[in-house]
Design a protein around this nucleic acid. Structure first.
Lengths: 308, 308
DNA sequence: CCTGGCATG
DNA sequence: CATGGCAGG
């Protein structure tokens, strides 16, 4: 039957985000909603320097829909120096004029999936012109889906990434493991030239603290041991999870909520979006924010303040 | 290129409904909009009998969307004895409760396309219970797409149909010709038992008066000589086009407008929806209405008043 | 320019 | 439960 698919989806999502629902079945009590109030931005680094670089990253889940939902109004308010977007799902020729004509960001870069223009895709918009911009991670097998843009600025590289989802039933977990190895190699190699900032949807919640229902999701995309280990290896390679660096104990801080089951209202979410820093940049870290009030996607934006 | 399709569509629709656009190009003048004001319902037949049977037919272009757009509110206002719907595009299990639970119509019948539940499909809802209801026209090759429901009432058969579209580029015109022959045979055969009313989207504008741009559409689905001839044959077989019977000279009376190019606002339309009557029922004809103010689909509803 | 379904998340 | 693309009209 054709309609079987809906049931599959419900089941998969049920596993994903309703470990608590099972508990609720026993206790017959709805789980209390615990929100996360992102504190005011800190605009000085530990060593007292003023923030002078602001980067925002947002998985927009379809740029055209996100523009219609006034995502750009939020961006203008936030006014980062660099804006990184993931899951644009849009061919360059179909980009809305609202974004292509944005005067605040004269330097715009787009990566699109080769075969399916409505799949994946990332973008970077900058107030200042980068020295150089490259696409992909230099491996044919990974560079067909428009997942990575790297911009070289005078003092750092900025890499934005939309890491491959392991998929329903983990159908693409093997590929993801290969990706994780190669992407880490790419970043380590790049870092030899100058320090880097990596941002984007890394499609993994690292630790149990990074999602609402760790117990129920150990076999689901985004929280398998393999994906978590991949993230651990990235830290072991010398990169720092800026949010966790500043807020090591902070619970209920998420950047993604499935559209299903009213998850966002209940703050049943995942922290999938990150700013990772080369160790040389950690002293410059002022703040790493989760803008969980911003609507327009199933992810919220995150913002980094650095004092360079 | 993937995106070529949009251009194709625009071209096809351009041919369809913009013969006037070409003229406009020459004259550099926009065509004046001429609307059709359906006159008040006549509720007596020629021989002075009072109307006592009201039938409404509507191609809803997706029943679920149409329900969301408050199509049922209009139906409740119109309150026909029998409601016929075409292009329901909905499996029975996916029907909105709003319609399945409608107490005004305790007798409900659904025909759905076998392979593709989101394609075609017709329905009949009745206040009184028919003696018998059948589906299709008794020919395997035509009865897989949920296009015909026949209800036997004491004094007449009611047949509702969604006639196959000949398609862009007339890809299905050959099939349509076969359909027209077999459907006509079905109706003629049925009529031997008792008189019938045929209603629905017959997917043809019969004469030049039945569409805005006859000149530009002679090679387009819905106005090819073959389809028009099929309709003529139906009349030759003894059926009467109730609207044209009453309003032989009425121009600008349409039941369909493409969603494209703002056609409805400009009344650039087609008369594709009909009530056809067995000759025995013509004396009972009170009125045949085009409800062109009713919104919710790219077709408007039509209503028949009979004095039985 | 709309519909419903599909793959994807 | 959203996205974009597709077939169909």
């Amino acid at each position: 039957m054709k309609r079987g698919k809906k049931a599959d989806e419900a089941a998969a999502e049920g596993e994903n985000d309703s470990a608590s629902a099972k508990k609720a079945k026993k206790s017959k009590e709805p789980e209390p909603v615990v929100l996360y109030d992102d504190p005011p931005d800190k605009l000085t680094s530990k060593d007292g320097k003023d923030a002078n670089l602001k980067i925002t990253s947002w998985n927009v889940d379809g740029l055209r829909a996100w523009v219609k939902k006034k995502g750009l109004d939020w961006v203008r308010e936030e006014a980062p120096d660099v804006l990184c977007l993931q899951e644009t799902k849009c061919a360059e020729k179909d980009l809305p004029a609202d974004i292509t004509s944005m005067p605040e960001y004269p330097h715009k870069y787009w990566a699109v999936s080769d075969d399916n223009e409505g799949y994946s895709g990332v973008a970077m918009l900058s107030k200042t012109e980068p020295i150089k911009v490259t696409y992909g991670i230099g491996k044919e097998e990974h560079d067909k889906e428009g997942r990575v843009i790297t911009a070289e600025f005078p003092k750092y590289f900025l890499v934005t990434a939309y890491v491959p989802n392991a998929g329903r039933g983990l159908v693409r977990l093997d590929y993801r493991k290969t990706w994780d190895v190669d992407f880490r190699a790419y970043l380590s190699d790049l870092e030899k030239q100058k320090p880097l900032v990596l941002c984007g949807d890394l499609n993994v919640a690292h630790l149990e603290i990074d999602l609402k229902n760790p117990k129920g999701n150990k076999k689901n995309a985004g929280f398998t041991p393999e994906e978590r280990e991949g993230f651990s290896q990235l830290l072991a390679a010398g990169f720092t999870d800026s949010f966790r660096e500043l807020y090591p104990e902070q619970t209920n801080a998420y950047t993604f909520w499935t559209y299903m089951m009213n998850s966002r209202a209940k703050n049943v979410g995942w922290r999938l979006d990150y700013f990772l820093l080369s160790s040389a940049l950690v002293p410059s870290l002022c703040d790493s924010k989760i803008r969980n009030k911003a609507m327009g996607s199933d992810h919220c934006p995150i913002t980094l303040h650095l004092a360079m």
